[in-house]
Design a protein around this nucleic acid. Structure first.
Length: 267
DNA sequence: ACATTGACCTGAGAGC
DNA sequence: TGCTCTCAGGTCAATG
């Protein structure tokens, strides 16, 4: 599900396939996904613009459109969204295309979204969007250090899992990578934030950064992730890839949660 | 202010 | 076979 690493991969994909190209036309069929903009005015804004750069914040991908008033295309991928680019022959099985951009040089870019939880919109810039939606800092850049994490967790009383997934605390972690980080940091998902030791916070920070970077290197593909990770074994009853425990499924704040009760202890 | 829960959506898979 | 039910998980609104 598109979380920070997946969206980072989408960003790098758009960078290498579409940046610098000019829009000839676009087809928008995303009535449900559109936020703050009509299909008509989105198509109008895109027309003739050049895709100049991209920026990612959390699970949001922003694409800068130059050649007019400052506007950025914002893509959010929900659970099932993705992007795909092609030149001549349209790929097979290209279902659920909600928006397609046709470039002057014959290339195409499609935004797909099966379950329609995604969002497409136009914004004045990434910073104003982040501020308006009260998104927390993105944990990907180098300057996201342990102190920053500690500061973001201050004052929180709930379970660590729901807190890490709260986009106004940190922007980018979803259900799957949060489970992965807690699994590797050996922290029980229901542990209350105030009950976390200083060491645990440091470990969470270190593991978080390593997991995100490794996931991007693996292109977000679970099959390419290390064997000792939870992700490929994220199923009830599986043997824990780190110890002799058994992976257990539970619910935390309404979200299905997988963890190893043997090395992620509550008490 | 913060935490929790349910609704939204669509397709896959389970169970009968 | 085919129907119905449950589940997945991103956000947001409503409620506690």
């Amino acid at each position: 599900m598109p979380e920070l690493p997946d969206v980072q991969v989408f960003k790098e994909y758009v960078d290498s396939t579409c940046i610098g190209r000019r829009v000839a036309s676009s087809h928008v069929d995303a009535e449900q996904e559109l936020t703050d903009v009509s299909a008509r005015s989105l198509a109008q804004t895109l027309h003739g613009r050049r895709l100049a750069s991209t920026h990612r914040h959390g699970k949001h991908l922003f694409i800068e459109l130059v050649g007019g008033p400052e506007r950025w295309l914002r893509l959010h991928f929900g659970m099932t969204g993705s992007v795909v680019a092609w030149d001549a022959e349209e790929p097979d099985q290209l279902d659920h295309v909600r928006m397609r951009i046709d470039f002057e040089d014959g290339r195409h870019l499609a935004y797909r979204c099966q379950r329609r939880f995604g969002q497409v919109g136009l914004v004045e810039g990434p910073e104003s969007f982040v501020e308006a939606h009260d998104l927390g800092p993105d944990p990907w850049p180098r300057d996201f250090d342990t102190d920053r994490l500690r500061e973001r967790l201050a004052g929180r009383r709930g379970a660590i899992k729901s807190t890490l997934m709260n986009q106004s605390v940190l922007a980018g972690l979803g259900n799957i990578y949060t489970d992965e980080i807690l699994f590797q940091a050996e922290v029980h998902p229901e542990r209350a934030v105030p009950a976390l030791s200083e060491r645990s916070v440091g470990r969470l920070h270190r593991v978080m950064r390593r997991v995100l970077h490794t996931a991007v290197t693996a292109r977000g593909n679970p099959a390419r992730m290390p064997n000792a990770w939870l992700l490929p074994d994220r199923r009830d009853g599986r043997t824990c890839p780190r110890c002799d425990g058994t992976i257990q499924k539970t619910r935390v704040s309404g979200r299905s949660t997988y963890f190893c009760p043997r090395h992620q202890r509550l008490g």
